[in-house]
Nucleic acid binder design. Structure first.
Lengths: 216, 216
DNA sequence: CGGATATTTGACCGATTGGTAAACATTACA
DNA sequence: TGTAATGTTTACCAATCGGTCAAATATCCG
């Protein structure tokens, strides 16, 4: 008889690692495209090329799958904000934060949509993460920005709304990709589109935050 | 025997108007909160305080409900962009566009989330609207903005990405409301939050688009 | 090898899904 | 008022949902 999954081994086998990886990869595909409620275990099983009971051998419920996925992705997702350096040059820090976030929207759109789906539907599964680790990190970085504004290195502004606006503008290219494509058409595809967006956003934020622009 | 719904009357009765209104109101509640696939007809029926078969008397399928809702909301949703006036003062036009979009995010968050859910999941039901009417309108307004940049009234910039960034920053406050709340905490609730956002975004966009800032 | 353990699967379950059929109730209107 | 058209509901359907179970199979290790 197999050991009940809750008490499953102290050491994880090679197969466990591989299969769990395989499942979470498939789960990312499905959850990010259809949201939690819109996804079915069968769909994930199909993408993962496993039988449904086999998935449920590794993750006892659909929720457990989702939670494991969120946990794995969340840390990485906040990496760019964490890299925000109080000692650095403000303009350069903001510029590179924008670029990093934009790169993530380009390279990891599924991860972006996973969170977008979740938050959009009221964040029923990640409320704690939002109010805990996320808020804490944002508070910390907001303080850094506040210091920059106080010292006149960048224009006086609300640091929280600054962060929100960087999140929204960059993630837009992942979350609303089909809309962006529909509007821009087939021209301006791929990297060109990415570069255009980067150029615009840098201009917008650097210009918009320039301290005390000498009277016009 | 009732007339088959497809051929249902040329004139719509009072009851039809009322009930369809009632259903679409409920459908907006449910679809915007859970996405199309995550919503069930029963949930809509409960919110609408009708029996499920009664809903299906007015809308033959879940899809028909969704489509009717999209159609009704889309026109209104694009109103602010349509108001964008080529003859107006660029700075003032942009400022009021931002404000209008922000007001819509505040006053009609369900409508915003309805589209966000749809687009996020690949826009399977509104692809045509995106590639047709939406693209057309955006193209037209992008041309207006282009003229402003050419004449030096605002800084040279990509008009499409400008529009995207106004969409994303403003709609963020509707679509990611729970995240915004989680990060900002209970302080800065309601109107104060709205005013803070408006002030920041105006500063960002007006500053970021100021033409040829005199050398720093 | 051989037995213990870990993995995989087909068959199945009750609940829920979108949707239908037909009886029943209400309304509009001549 | 009567009756035809419109509106509503109860009972139901097949398909799909998340999840279980026991049997079958593969793997590990002495």
């Amino acid at each position: 008889m197999a050991i009940p999954r809750a008490a499953k081994t102290l050491r994880r086998t090679r197969i466990q690692e591989e299969k769990e990886e395989q499942i979470l990869e498939a789960a990312l595909d499905v959850f990010s495209a259809r949201g939690f409620r819109g996804s079915t275990i069968d769909q994930i099983a199909e993408v993962a090329r496993m039988s449904k009971p086999n998935l449920l051998y590794y993750f006892r419920t659909k929720e457990a799958m989702h939670r494991a996925l969120i946990d794995r992705v969340l840390y990485t997702w906040l990496e760019p904000l964490r890299a925000f350096d109080a000692e650095g040059n403000p303009e350069e820090e903001i510029r590179s934060y924008i670029r990093r976030k934009l790169e993530m929207a380009r390279d990891f759109p599924r991860e972006s949509r996973l969170f977008a789906n979740e938050v959009l539907q009221g964040a029923p599964h990640i409320e704690d993460e939002l109010k805990g680790p996320l808020k804490q990190l944002v508070d910390e970085k907001a303080e850094v920005i506040r210091a920059w504004t106080k010292s006149g290195k960048i224009a006086e502004c609300d640091p929280y709304h600054l962060i929100f606006s960087i999140w929204s503008t960059t993630q837009h290219y992942a979350d609303f990709d089909v809309q962006v494509r529909a509007v821009l058409g087939q021209e301006h595809a791929g990297d060109e589109r990415f570069e255009d967006a980067a150029r615009f956003l840098e201009q917008l934020f650097i210009g918009g935050l320039r301290p005390n622009t000498p009277a016009t």
